[in-house]
Write a protein that binds this DNA or RNA. Structure first.
Lengths: 164, 164
DNA sequence: AATAAGATTCAGTGTTGCTTGAACATACTG
DNA sequence: CAGTATGTTCAAGCAACACTGAATCTTATT
């Protein structure tokens, strides 16, 4: 049973929960997903205590998970003048860092295969050919996806410039 | 300790293990990763018993995991004439189905956000705007990635046509 | 139809990793 | 410098899941 009462309107709380469930299948913890969902639907950045109270979770979990989400480029910190608490918010342009993380993983996997020693599988030509084809596909997709992200960057800079 | 001895050359076994470890961080089980790695480095399709023997795992796990990997579009079945065992192999052009799965997940997440009720977060315009921007980015990226995959399809059909 | 080979499901066990309260560290504030 | 607010780390409990041997189901073969 939850220790504290959540203070969210039910429809919002429900959406937060659906987002959390989704994120759980993406390798995040349940609470990590809740934090993300909550911040996504918050009009302001939130403090650790605020999140803990809202989500009915311990401050320990919130601290651990927020930093983990920050490391993964999902959240960022935001200070408030005259307040030394840490506030978190979802990064702007969220899908981009998310996707870049994904590309990184693909790159790492590519590298893993590329470094396969020549005598792998007793040097079977079938295997070697298969690996070569996979690497070729990754090269193509990584390049295409990378430049799509690049174009998005340029395009969104025009629409909402962060600096003049 | 392992029950059975693996029969792989050490360098191959080690690479299988590294691949398995990588897949573990992608939401697969360790054994699922091993199966994938083993098949990736196998010159022929393998039976459940073959995999079980090679990986030192129970046939039960192998059966469960192979079907799970099949459902996710990573493996496919391959029969051999005069043999009613089930053989598994890594799908050809692996990165493509993998990536398509990924796009599906993005689409589902998009839809989740798109279906957010209008009064979410007390109808905060900040939140509404943020969601709109995220959806816009997803629309763009999904379209770009989709057409990149499309181009790859056309390109690889030229190189290695499956049907004439 | 009986048998057997093969695949799948199931119930139990062990391991992993999430979550937490409490202890600890750090840095403001007066 | 003492006291307090805030954030982080730690050890332990617990829930969830992976893995297994055994039982069960399916289907080919005689």
């Amino acid at each position: 049973m939850p220790r504290r009462e959540a203070t969210l309107q039910p429809s919002t709380a429900q959406l937060v929960e659906r987002i959390a469930l989704f994120f759980e299948t993406e390798g995040f913890s349940r609470i990590g997903g809740r934090i993300f969902g909550r911040l996504l639907l918050s009009s302001t950045a939130m403090s650790l205590d605020g999140l803990a109270a809202d989500l009915g979770a311990s401050k320990a979990s919130i601290s651990t998970e927020t930093r983990s989400l920050e490391r993964r480029g999902i959240l960022e910190r935001a200070g408030k003048p005259g307040d030394r608490r840490v506030y978190y918010q979802v990064v702007p342009d969220l899908p981009v860092p998310t996707m870049e993380l994904r590309l990184d993983r693909m790159r790492r996997f590519s590298r893993l295969l590329a470094e396969a020693p020549g005598d792998v599988a007793e040097g079977s030509p079938v295997v070697r050919r298969r690996l070569e084809e996979i690497l070729e596909a990754y090269r193509y997709l990584l390049a295409e996806f990378g430049s799509a992200l690049e174009r998005w960057h340029r395009r969104s800079r025009k629409t909402s410039p962060k600096y003049s």
